[in-house]
Design a protein around this nucleic acid. Structure first.
Lengths: 183, 183
DNA sequence: GTCTATAATTCGATAGAC
DNA sequence: GTCTATCGAATTATAGAC
């Protein structure tokens, strides 16, 4: 069965996300991605130019954060942690980004954008130092993603989602709303 | 000036730590490590056998955690965060381990040992579910290391150490001593 | 649009002279 | 112990036939 160019392109993007998520940037090869998409390595190059651009296309991502200012403050932490966990589990892109960001500067820059810009915008109105609070939230949520999904480190990798939310929600809520302890 | 075998071996180990920390496992090459150590790639192979064993030797690490049971509970969080930050800054090994663990299974296994066994032992006596608490502490401290030293993500990468301690100490203290919220 | 063939590098690892 | 030379495999990327 013959596919159209767009279908092939979509299949390549999907395979690329899986490979980058599973193997990281350098170990995910154009060849293996092409094989997963049942196409030819040369086609991958034709469609996306080079490996960097393929990654950029595959790792396009939006957190789709809810508007935090409409939530009651005592639900803020739980809502955010639950949202992060679902976002991580329903899509390979975050894992691909984290695995690649550790060794690839373009991926690291995208992570910075996502976890400062997008988060800081959502935290606007909660405090005047939204960037500081956003980066604190990033340190806990990315650390959770790292331990739970990438390193599979300890009970936090096995716990039910509700248990993780119960443990982390007060942390996130404090980072977003508590008075600055350094002031 | 001619070095002894042990001096060369030590120079290789030091260069390997730096390269693995800066580039991650696959991008740190035997050749670049040998060049940094002002020696020959073949000597690296002779001394350490292969790349995996070189990494294992270079990434030998101990957290040197203080005995947590002797500390007053309200100093626990601050002491641990401060200890982690110092441990991270005085040595390249933690950064090498984190960068490598994302794509190398042997490095990931060592991370699991360090951040479950070593931490759980130190947390013994604080609670009966020490492994759960240790992995929660790992999720926040590794997330901090990732954002502050690897990704350089946001204000958390620029803040003074004391400010980081002030923000994170209550989190770590709660993970170690608060009653289980899921019980 | 698709694929074959291959160029140009780069890597880990080995053999062997000194 | 040290280094030169090189092998064999793998990679990204390109050229060009169909």
């Amino acid at each position: 069965m013959r596919r159209s160019g767009d279908q092939t392109k979509a299949a390549i993007l999907s395979a690329a996300r899986e490979r980058f998520a599973a193997d990281g940037y350098e170990r995910a090869t154009i060849r293996s991605i092409a094989a997963d998409a049942a196409t030819d390595p040369a086609l991958v190059m034709r469609h996306f130019g080079n490996k960097e651009k393929l990654f950029a296309a595959a790792a396009d991502f939006d957190l789709h954060l809810p508007d935090l200012s409409t939530l009651p403050r005592d639900k803020l932490g739980a809502a955010l942690v639950d949202h992060f966990l679902r976002r991580w589990e329903e899509d390979d892109t975050l894992q691909a980004l984290l695995r690649a960001a550790v060794t690839n500067e373009a991926a690291a820059e995208r992570m910075r954008q996502i976890f400062t810009s997008q988060l800081a915008v959502a935290a606007k109105g909660l405090a005047d130092d939204a960037e500081v609070r956003a980066s604190l939230v990033a340190s806990q949520t990315l650390g959770l993603g790292l331990c739970r999904y990438v390193l599979k480190l300890g009970p936090v990798a096995e716990m039910r989602r509700a248990a993780v939310v119960a443990w982390l929600a007060p942390t996130i809520e404090r980072y977003l709303t508590a008075p600055d302890p350094t002031a």
